[in-house]
């Protein structure tokens, strides 16, 4: 069984975002780039599944659509433990463009399980995994908070509003992962970082694709008025404010 994990390269979650060129472009100055948090959890789970000797997982490959500048993030995924990596050499433009490139990679190489994160913490589209599965014509299960293998069968828990469903599926399958699939992301150790330098990182050229959406410009949220402080000895005042000023109670 072969596993593919789709990786998005995003600004570190503590980044203060700024825009340039009339607010049409993210200012990338000084940004630390990291693996998208959900992808990192999915990768962690994929590696755990491979290490469990009861499972016949041959390999865990990571794939990323992005320019050469994102190679440090890919190397990080290799250092965490992925066996090899594929980079599609194109700047990601919209979810449809990225999913189309990923579909091409999957069609060229066969995979049984494909992981994607439920969303990417930059443009928050929550779209690539679902689009990829539709392009491939294979099933998808979304909001997956737990995944196991048993005799080459997937056992999945998906979160629904107000509950959970235990599921199985035919393969190949796109697993769209959220929190819970792994608790903590795995961190690379020194040995992993050394080994990552020698692992294959294959660069492929993109196929020609349009985009369906265009990000025209950006704005920052309006500043909030300062917080009203309430005397801890007089919580009654808070109740009054919530009732009469905010009117939420």
């Amino acid at each position: 069984m072969k596993i593919l994990v789709c990786i998005s390269n995003v600004p570190d979650t503590t980044t203060k975002v700024r825009f340039v060129d009339d607010n049409t472009r993210l200012d990338t100055n000084g940004i630390q780039w990291v693996i998208n948090p959900w992808d990192e959890l999915a990768l962690t789970r994929a590696l755990q599944l491979k290490e469990d000797k009861n499972n016949a997982v041959e390999s865990v490959t990571v794939v990323h659509v992005g320019g050469k500048g994102s190679e440090p993030t890919i190397r990080k995924a290799l250092a965490i433990g992925a066996d090899d990596a594929i980079r599609v050499n194109a700047e990601p433009q919209d979810a449809w463009f990225v999913a189309s490139q990923l579909a091409e990679v999957v069609q060229q190489n066969e995979f049984d399980i494909i992981f994607a994160g439920i969303e990417s913490s930059d443009y928050n589209g929550a779209a690539v995994g679902g689009m990829l599965s539709e392009l491939l014509g294979v099933p998808s299960i979304s909001a997956v908070s737990s995944m196991d293998l048993e005799n080459d069968q997937v056992k999945i828990i998906r979160d629904i509003d107000g509950g959970k469903e235990q599921m199985t599926s035919q393969l190949p399958l796109v697993v769209i992962a959220q929190k819970g699939i792994a608790i903590e992301p795995r961190i690379a150790n020194m040995r992993g970082i050394m080994m990552a330098r020698k692992k294959p990182l294959n660069v492929v050229e993109p196929v020609e694709k349009d985009t369906l959406v265009e990000f025209v410009d950006y704005e920052l949220p309006q500043a909030k008025p300062p917080c009203k402080m309430i005397d801890p000895e007089n919580v009654q005042e808070l109740v009054d404010l919530l009732q009469n000023e905010a009117k939420v109670i």
């Binding site: 999913a99 779209a127 679902g130 979304s142 509003d161």
Partner: peptide
């Protein structure tokens, strides 16, 4: 809806209908 079900279905429909997706 931008809930678990909507997030699962909307991108698939985007491909099926060749329709741009504006999410959330």
């Amino acid at each position: 809806a931008h809930n678990n079900t909507g997030k699962a279905l909307a991108p698939r429909l985007s491909v099926r209908l060749q329709a741009a997706l504006g999410s959330e």
